[in-house]
Design a protein around this nucleic acid. Structure first.
Lengths: 324, 324
DNA sequence: TTGAAAGCGGTACCAG
DNA sequence: CTGGTACCGCTTTCAA
């Protein structure tokens, strides 16, 4: 079975491969007549160009690498949706890699990408990362890189991020306004900018309301959801005075729900919970979860060094059981 | 700036590219000494092979294409997680394409993949698809294809699917056991095997319980969530005797919640809902949603033509408000 | 407007 | 065990 490639088309049409190639790329200087013949034959034989040959020759692959911690998370799946959508519109392809917040994986994946496989990288750094030298490789090889959400501020590139500090300040303030005085902060790694910014907003809100910052109330995400639940239960048992929880990511809010349920603590009356989240169904949760939601995921092309800021807003749900 | 490729390594080491290539692929016949030198130099210069050159020559790309309707869906994100995981373990790469249940997109994507970009395809067919000729292209070009969940049974390949018919029978039976007599079935396209199987189970359960099958009670998913809600509201208004809903996909369950809320209908007392779903938080929904959940996502290598069946089970939640 | 040919970066065959 | 070389499929000069 003859493969369908340029040579085959050329033979079939008694033309040279060069002409066929030009005709298909509607480049300059090809007579309309031959162009039509070529296109007709291509579609007849269902010709599809071999992208590897083309990438090799052109030094561009029309492919972007997307590196994420995970995809089973409403925020990241929204992101993947957005990326895939504009990529497809621009005739780009998306290579997806998941780190599962594992540093070694992130390093290994980064290394894979510098061989010319992709034209650019979109990345949300693993929360377990402390050392970012692997990312410098991207710069050395001149691979355009955009960080989003979980940003690495060491590399001087475009970033897509949110006003984490302000939103956290607002969220914590919201709990305080509703009577909370001992507020636990469930954070992600503080080696990441996003984590530090959210914690900063939390601390600032406490400070401005003359509530002392208590180190014991700040806890970090564990490797697994099960451990998160255990950690939160432990915290709530040690500190029965806790009356509010500010979860900086959605999964920690879910774990808090579970911990409260296990301990027989009533959410809303005993403890109020607020979280960064994109859960569409937050309103149907029992009780409804108050969330800080980013309004939409933007995908623009900011000039290098430019930081695109998304705004988040606190979404208040009005079902009967809501406390706000 | 010199590019780091085999030629560069060869120059640096005063060896031929052939030798360097062999050393790096630890193929036979390379002296341990030179091999060590080559590897050392490669890591010193941070050499990464150009995958396009390799793919071009070898006619394999170590890349698989994954075509899904969407990723913002707990089941599919679980699937993507699984695929990426084993792909990475086997040193394979994952190209992700989303159809958004759009037939034209699915056709366009399929066409893109037959040019040698990928070694194989994993696919869950768009529910809007009625014509599957585009999939025959995959067979013509000898591209291994595995369908999962939404299966196309016209192409004779490996499939990963679930015992849809049995589960639907059980789900419908569950509603009947709990007193429902007029059960609406919210289905996906019936041009898909999965849709037909689920409807078959529904119909069988009705039959075995001497409940007449009513065509008006079977409704299909609309292009958008908003339209789903409108469709369900319309149905519930036209047929106030409906006391149960069997949603064959999760989003239809969510839309049903919304429709009931809009109409002021009490879920559980007025209408009971059951659905195929992988929502982790189903238990926290208000009221908790009864789900048919697939126990785990399997990724094995079934021989061609073999159909791997996953088992689903009905998960019963015990919170106070649950009706089951 | 078209064709011949070089070459992208590896791989694999064959000779030494 | 190593080097020379053809070639994978396509793009892009350069000449005709």
């Amino acid at each position: 079975m003859e493969p369908v490639n340029l040579k085959r088309l050329a033979q079939e049409l008694k033309l040279s491969v060069a002409t066929v190639s030009r005709a298909l790329n509607n480049s300059s200087s090809t007579s309309p007549a031959t162009k039509a013949r070529v296109v007709a034959m291509a579609s007849k034989l269902k010709y599809e160009p071999n992208p590897h040959a083309s990438s090799l020759r052109r030094h561009t692959s029309k492919t972007i690498g997307v590196i994420l911690p995970e995809v089973a998370n409403p925020f990241f799946s929204l992101v993947v949706n957005g990326i895939e959508e504009v990529a497809r519109d621009q005739n780009y392809h998306v290579l997806l890699y998941l780190t599962h917040d594992n540093y070694e994986r992130e390093v290994a994946i980064t290394r894979l990408l510098v061989g010319g496989r992709i034209d650019g990288v979109l990345m949300s750094v693993a929360s377990a990362s402390q050392d970012f030298t692997h990312l410098d490789l991207l710069r050395e090889r001149n691979i355009p890189t955009v960080f989003f959400d979980r940003v690495y501020d060491g590399l001087h590139t475009a970033q897509v991020t949110t006003d984490n500090c302000d939103s956290s300040y607002a969220a914590t303030g919201h709990l305080i306004d509703n009577g909370c005085r001992t507020i636990a902060h469930l954070a992600v790694s503080n080696s990441l900018y996003i984590g530090r910014a959210r914690t900063r907003g939390y601390a600032a809100a406490l400070h401005d309301n003359r509530i002392p910052f208590d180190d014991e109330l700040v806890r970090y995400a564990q490797p697994s959801q099960r451990q998160d639940v255990a950690m939160i239960q432990g915290l709530l048992q040690r500190r029965p005075d806790i009356d509010g929880i500010f979860a900086s990511v959605e999964s920690l809010a879910m774990s808090s729900y579970e911990a409260c349920q296990n301990l027989g603590l009533s959410i809303v009356t005993a403890i109020k919970i607020i979280a960064f989240s994109n859960l569409e169904i937050a309103t149907f949760l029992s009780p409804p979860l108050t969330t800080i939601t980013n309004q939409r995921t933007l995908w623009a092309k900011p000039p290098p060094g430019y930081c695109l800021t998304q705004s988040w807003k606190t979404r208040r749900f009005q079902p009967a059981t809501a406390w706000n």
